[in-house]
């Protein structure tokens, strides 16, 4: 195990000199494959089968492919978490739990809109498509309506800013030069299709042979007045000499459905550590 860890650290260049090369003034170009893991704080406020809010920390994982050229930035990202949530601020009188599955797949194709090479500042914007799935099951004695879900497929806009920072001293103490990339991105759907459980929490075909808990015929067209999904990502990446990187990232994914009945709000806040492997 120790050997494997050392090998991994060697691969990402962590054991080598931390003196990284300065990013050139030209636009950074790279192809990264990243793997991440961390904790996702999921919070749920739904109204279909509960008046309780649920929250909890669940393990989360991500896989990401990103590519930057001189003109654009393309990112395909998948985030997944699964685990158990508890009622918010509930006392010992509560033995309710919620099993939660969260899946977020995102494709952003962003064009370089603005650059300031002297301060290593780059701004991108462009379209995004996303698919998000959140499935919840409760242990309560609420029978056939114990399962709820919200699934969305969206087309919208995304924007991203990158800022490269070089640090060569702390206060007045000189240190070996360290290079960081600070990144922030936001995405917002313009149009979506949102699938939800029907009004009572049971599907219309539940009484049929092989009756399903999922009924994808129950959906609505989402736009800014009845569906909100703001996803913000913040990241601090430590750039290694071998062009790989280690990143501390934070994802803030707020989702609010407002169908005719049973609105719901969910928030996924995932703090994770990612390892970026450069293939360029």
């Amino acid at each position: 195990m120790k050997k494997r860890l050392l090998t991994l650290l060697t691969i990402i260049g962590f054991s080598s000199s931390l003196l990284a090369s300065s990013p050139s003034d030209s636009i950074p170009k790279y192809v990264y494959l990243a793997f991440g893991g961390g904790l996702n704080r999921t919070s749920v406020n739904e109204t279909l089968n509960t008046s309780l809010s649920y929250t909890g920390f669940t393990p989360g994982f991500s896989v990401e492919y990103s590519m930057a050229t001189s003109k654009m930035y393309v990112e395909l990202r998948n985030v997944f978490s699964i685990g158990s949530l508890s009622p918010y601020k509930a006392g010992s009188n509560f033995n309710n739990t919620m099993q939660n599955i969260y899946e977020n797949i995102n494709l952003n194709a962003l064009w370089l809109l603005y650059k300031k090479p002297e301060s290593k500042f780059y701004t991108y914007a462009g379209p995004m498509v996303s698919g998000k799935v959140q499935v919840r099951g409760k242990n309560s004695n609420i029978s056939n309506s114990a399962y709820t879900y919200d699934i969305s497929a969206s087309f919208g806009l995304a924007a991203k800013v990158d800022k490269y920072v070089k640090i060569d001293h702390i206060f007045s103490w000189p240190i070996n030069e360290q290079n960081f990339k600070l990144g922030a991105s936001i995405s917002y759907p313009l149009v979506s299709n949102v699938w939800l459980q029907p009004y009572s929490g049971i599907t219309k075909n539940i009484a049929q042979e092989g009756g399903m808990l999922l009924d994808l015929s129950n959906s609505y067209f989402g736009y800014f007045l009845n569906y909100t999904n703001i996803e913000v990502n913040l990241a601090v990446a430590y750039l290694l000499k071998n062009k790989n990187a280690i990143e501390l990232s934070y994802m803030h994914d707020y989702n609010s459905t407002q169908p005719k009945h049973n609105p719901s709000k969910t928030l996924n806040q995932m703090l994770s550590l990612k390892l970026y492997f450069n293939f360029k």
Binding site: N49, S51, N93, F94, S143, S145, G201, I202
Partner: peptide, 18 residues
């Protein structure tokens, strides 16, 4: 078919929903 909800105090009620 029975369905149900969780009440604000954490208890549950169930009843016929279709």
């Amino acid at each position: 078919l029975p369905i149900g909800v969780e009440l604000p105090n954490g208890w549950q009620i169930h009843f016929a929903g279709n």
